[in-house]
C-alpha cells in the first residue's frame, strides 16, 4: 500500500466520486465541489501567469504600450454586464469575430471542403480497393441525399436517402463502439491507479 500522502488523497477522492454509482451522497458532493473550486483556481492562476504576465504586464513594464489595445478590447467586452455600456462590447466582439473568421474560414474551406471533395472524386483504387472506393462514393452521395430537405424524400431521392440512413447508422454504430471503448479506458486507468499505485496489488506494481 502506498505511503504517499498525494496518492492517498487521489485514491480517496476517486472513491468519493465512484460512490455516486451507488447513490448521490455527501462524499461525492464534497469531491465534486472540491474539483470545481480547485480547477477554477488553477485555471485562473495559469491564465494569469501565462497570458496576462507575458503578454501584458511585462511588455507594459518595458514601456511597450501596444498591449493597451487588447486590454481596452477586453474591458469593453465586460461592458455587457450593464445595459448602458453593453454596446461597447459589440466593438470588441466584432473585432474578435472578424479576426477569427479571417483565420478560420479560408483554412476550413481549404482543409475540410476542397481537400475532402478532391478525395471523394479521385480515381478509384485498383483491384479490391475499388470496392472501398465505391462504398465511399455511394455513402457520400446517399448521405448527401438524406440531408437534402429542399425536396420531398420520394422516388429515387427517397430511395437514396434510405440507403444514406443505413450508412449513417453504420457510422453511428462505429462511433458508439469507440465511445464505449473510451469510457471503459477511463475506468481502467482509475482501477489501475487504485490497484497499483494505491494498494500495490497489481502484478508488476
Amino acid at each position: 500500500m502506498s505511503h504517499s500522502v498525494d496518492t492517498w488523497i487521489m485514491a480517496l477522492l476517486t472513491l468519493c466520486v465512484f460512490s455516486f454509482l451507488y447513490r448521490d451522497n455527501p462524499f461525492y458532493r464534497f469531491a465534486e465541489h472540491l474539483f470545481v473550486g480547485a480547477a477554477a483556481g488553477y485555471l485562473l492562476a495559469v491564465q494569469y501567469q501565462n497570458v496576462l504576465v507575458p503578454n501584458m504586464i511585462r511588455p507594459l513594464g518595458r514601456g511597450n504600450l501596444l498591449p493597451l489595445v487588447p486590454l481596452a478590447l477586453g474591458i469593453m467586452l465586460l461592458g455587457r454586464l450593464a445595459e448602458k455600456t453593453s454596446s461597447a462590447s459589440r466593438w470588441a466582439l466584432a473585432f474578435y469575430v472578424g479576426i477569427y473568421s479571417g483565420i478560420a474560414v479560408p483554412a476550413y474551406m481549404q482543409a475540410q471542403i476542397f481537400a475532402q471533395l478532391a478525395d471523394a472524386t479521385k480515381p478509384w483504387q485498383p483491384g479490391w480497393g475499388a470496392i472501398n472506393s465505391a462504398l465511399i462514393l455511394i455513402g457520400f452521395l446517399t448521405v448527401l441525399a438524406y440531408f437534402f430537405f429542399s425536396a420531398p424524400h420520394r422516388g429515387l431521392h427517397g430511395a437514396s436517402a434510405r440507403v444514406g440512413i443505413w450508412f449513417l447508422m453504420v457510422a453511428f454504430g462505429a462511433s458508439f463502439g469507440y465511445t464505449v471503448m473510451a469510457r471503459v479506458s477511463l475506468l481502467i486507468a482509475r482501477v489501475q491507479f487504485l490497484l497499483r499505485d494505491w494498494l500495490g496489488v497489481l502484478p508488476g506494481a
Binding site: D119, Y178, T179, S185
Partner: peptide, 16 residues
C-alpha cells in the same frame, strides 16, 4: 481519444 477517432478517418484517405 477513441470518441474522436471515426471523425478523422477521412483525413487519412485524403492524405492530410
Amino acid at each position: 481519444t477513441a470518441v474522436m477517432a471515426t471523425d478523422y478517418y477521412p483525413y487519412l484517405s485524403s492524405g492530410q
